[in-house]
Amino acid sequence: MAVILIVEDDKNTRILTSARLSPYYTVAEAENGEKALDVLDRMHIDLIIADVQMPVLNGYGMVREMREAGMNIPVIMLTAMHAFDDKRTGFASGTDDYMTKPINYEELLWRIKALLRRSNIANEKMIKVGGLTLDSASYTASRGKESIELAKKEFELLYKLLSYPGIIFTKSQLLDEIWGYDTESDEMTIKTHINRIRNKFEDYDEFDIVTIRGLGYKAEVHEC
């Protein structure tokens, strides 16, 4: 089941929207853009529904920070504003779709389904390498009944490399895509996480993470 994040500072609207969507999707909530970014750090989200006018960090600012960090999660912006310039600002910030309040929930469900279909959410959640399965919906790695514990960044790093076997990713690319463009982490962070992944999978024959001296890393997948 896809996970929808509702970002809305009005508690009643947030509760109502959650109630209307929960029969069809798993729902998470946040009261402003800053809280939403915290949620994105903790769990997998398939689509975001966000209000524009919120305290601390508004909808436009939230989407802008997401896109600058390389997050391509679809976003539907909800607003009471009707002006063309407001919609232009929303799309320019990286918004995928736009609805004005009051919310027509039947129409919202149509738009959610269309966006999820276009982003191929159902086909991008899982990678299988030999007997190993990486499931990005639950951030789990498993082989048969055996489960491998991975921190969130370890999982995202491994998922990225195994999604493109044989492709070399520079340390800068990995930092930008996984930690975000404005991260204070450095290339030693990448090395530390790679070493942790190697240690956790040292008895697995499905793949190796290869260091390309002076460049970065790539995953080599083996037939098992």
Rank of each mutant, 00 (worst) to 15 (best):
E149F: 13
S147C: 07
T17F: 02
K125S: 11
N120L: 09
I112A: 12
A80C: 05
Y164A: 14
Y204Q: 06
I121L: 09
A28L: 09
I209T: 03
Q53A: 06
K145F: 03
Y25W: 04
K200Y: 11
D51A: 02
I190N: 09
G216R: 00
I6A: 04
N120I: 00
P102D: 11
K125R: 09
K128I: 08
D135V: 01
R20V: 00
R196A: 08
E65Q: 15
V3C: 13
A80V: 02
R64F: 14
D182E: 14
N195K: 13
V129Y: 01
L215G: 05
S185I: 11
N123Y: 08
P165G: 11
D10Y: 02
L157V: 06
Y25D: 00
K160E: 13
D10K: 00
I4C: 04
T13D: 06
E184N: 13
Y25K: 01
T17E: 05
L158M: 13
D10L: 02
G70R: 14
D86P: 11
R196D: 12
E124V: 01
G166C: 09
M1D: 07
V129I: 10
N104Y: 07
E34C: 01
S142Y: 02
F207W: 02
A137W: 03
K35R: 08
E124M: 04
M1Q: 04
E31W: 00
D51R: 01
K171W: 08
S93M: 14
R67K: 14
M71Y: 11
L115D: 11
H222F: 09
A114C: 11
V221C: 00
M126T: 02
K153M: 10
L175E: 08
K171N: 14
M81D: 15
S93G: 09
F169K: 11
G144A: 01
T189E: 15
V52W: 07
V27M: 03
V129H: 02
K153W: 10
F169A: 15
T211C: 07
F201L: 00
D182N: 15
A30G: 05
M126L: 06
Y60D: 07
T89R: 15
N12W: 03
V3F: 07
K11V: 05
K35G: 01
L162N: 02
E29V: 04
G144W: 02
E177D: 12
I194C: 10
I49Q: 06
I168W: 08
K128V: 11
G61I: 04
G61M: 04
F155Y: 13
Q173W: 05
E124Q: 08
K113C: 07
G180F: 10
K113I: 05
V7P: 08
I103W: 10
I148R: 08
L158Q: 06
P23I: 03
G70N: 10
D186L: 07
D208V: 03
K125Q: 11
L16W: 06
F84N: 08
T26N: 03
L150V: 03
E149K: 15
W179D: 06
I190E: 12
L157C: 07
G33M: 01
D46N: 06
C224L: 03
M71L: 15
L78T: 05
M62E: 01
K87R: 15
E106M: 11
E106K: 13
R88Y: 12
I197L: 04
N123S: 14
I103H: 11
P23T: 01
A36M: 02
P55M: 05
K11N: 03
L150D: 08
